[in-house]
Write a protein that binds this DNA or RNA. Structure first.
Lengths: 269, 269
DNA sequence: GTGCGACGTTGAACGCGTTCAAGGCGGCGA
DNA sequence: TCGCCGCCTTGAACGCGTTCAACGTCGCAC
């Protein structure tokens, strides 16, 4: 084990152990430190601020890896090839990434970001729940599209329950929360009226449905994955209808039953 | 590549094909030549019929592998260990099995058989659809239970779309068909009345739901996987209600919509 | 300047799944 | 009896992901 996903934080580490024992000179004479901004971006001083040397190498390795993954596929890309192409020793890649799988997290983050951006359009201008949901789902397939072959080769890695790459794992929790937030926006920005308890659960349920779509997509060998497109177009109206039905008094008991099931299944881990 | 699941062969294997064609001395004295029968089949000769030597080795390797998988887990069991324990060379294992993954298929077949047997009880005596479904699902968890840790370690292998171990793959088609048949029995042996088109699709849909339960089960770390039990208990009444609703005239259009979606998604592969 | 300690980097080495050329071995036709 | 052919078996070897002891290298305290 080692570091993990240096979020921001100039320099590194972070993750589980919050505080850095390493001095933190903090406010030296010069250099205003720029706490919230990107750590690199050499404002005027051209010569490399040494603390970032590692981060530079890290990025270099990650970029190289993702490029090779795209060009050759995941399994066909060897760690030796990544290291050679990046001009470092193979052991160096393992200094920054715990394993080959961990390189994928960089891909996740990137796609997640692109999904948000691609969803911006429909979320900004559309008020209808069904249209918003459909737009977001199609946007997700759009941004994942170029990586379909690649995704299929590393999907197994994500499916392993104990793997940090599993969408249900603790390590994936940031990007998962981000994705669930996206579906929360789908709901809250729409004019749909919901049962209150359902409203609490729905974002996660929609994310779960999205995972199902992804599962289907990964197995979808039709040209352009058009079967997945049809699945989305067909399933969204059904969800829309179901969600609206949840407000009808006669169906309240049924809704309660479903919500109780979700709650009971979630308990004790 | 080499053979694959030699159907053939008296001696053993069994699984799908129930009857053993071995000789069957039957008409003792004269032996009427049995023209269409297999040419070998040593009537009384005790010494090993050479044709079966290979099959013996195959079984030895499979048994050894499954035992070690159970004892140590999938990834922790090496091919070298299997070979050593079985007293053969490592290359010999690859003569009978294309890869380490292919050893799992033997496990699949065994569990599938056990599932059928365990479901026998409830399918024989129960007429209520919900009770039958619930019984079959619980029986499935029962027989898989002892292998929960093992299953988690090889689950990734099954999830890879291109893997022969994928439940959706062509290679898994025999055990998949068998499982779907199990759910067809659940329906046909019950007193539930169904829309005709739904009846055609329902077995596969129930199998799909079963795959979902398995997916949940693999990730379920609660003691004894009791969350999975609760999931089954909660989801079966919902399915039962939904299925009965399908006969109500007002809801026919909705049902047609769902079935049309399934059909459209299935087209072109 | 000198030494120190942490960060960064190296490449040989390990154990794994898998492949392959080579060689038994045993029954059958001559 | 001999030789052949095809099933079966072998273990060294390959390339992979991963580990690790060792070695720079640089900023800082003295």
């Amino acid at each position: 084990m080692r570091r993990w996903r240096t979020t921001v934080t100039h320099v590194r580490i972070a993750a589980t152990e919050p505080d850095e024992p390493t001095a933190e000179p903090d406010a030296p004479t010069a250099e205003p430190d720029a706490p919230t901004a990107e750590p690199d971006a050499p404002a005027a001083g051209e010569d490399k601020p040494r603390r970032q040397r590692g981060e530079q190498t890290r990025q270099l390795i990650l970029e190289t890896a993702l490029r090779l993954f795209r060009e050759r596929g995941y399994t066909e890309t060897t760690m030796r090839a990544i290291a050679k192409e990046a001009g470092v020793a193979v052991g160096n890649a393992y200094y920054y990434f715990d394993s080959k799988e961990h390189l994928i997290q960089g891909f996740y983050d990137r796609v997640q970001l692109a999904h948000r951006a691609a969803a911006e359009g429909v979320l900004g201008g559309e008020k209808e729940f069904a249209a918003r949901l459909k737009g977001v789902l199609h946007a997700g397939i759009d941004v994942n599209g170029p990586y379909h072959a690649f995704a299929a080769t590393f999907f197994k890695t994500a499916a392993e329950p104990s793997s940090p790459m599993s969408p249900f794992s603790r390590e994936s929790s940031p990007s998962r929360e981000s994705a669930i937030g996206l579906f929360r926006e789908v709901i809250e920005g729409s004019n749909v009226k919901l049962d209150r308890d359902l409203q609490k659960e729905l974002p996660e349920l929609l994310w779960l449905a999205w995972m199902g779509v992804i599962l289907f997509w990964v197995h979808d060998k039709s040209p352009g994955q058009r079967r997945t497109r049809r699945l989305i177009d067909g399933v969204v109206p059904l969800i829309d209808r179901l969600v609206r039905l949840s407000r009808i008094p006669v169906l309240k008991p049924a809704l309660r039953q479903v919500l109780a099931l979700i709650d009971s299944v979630r308990r004790d881990d």
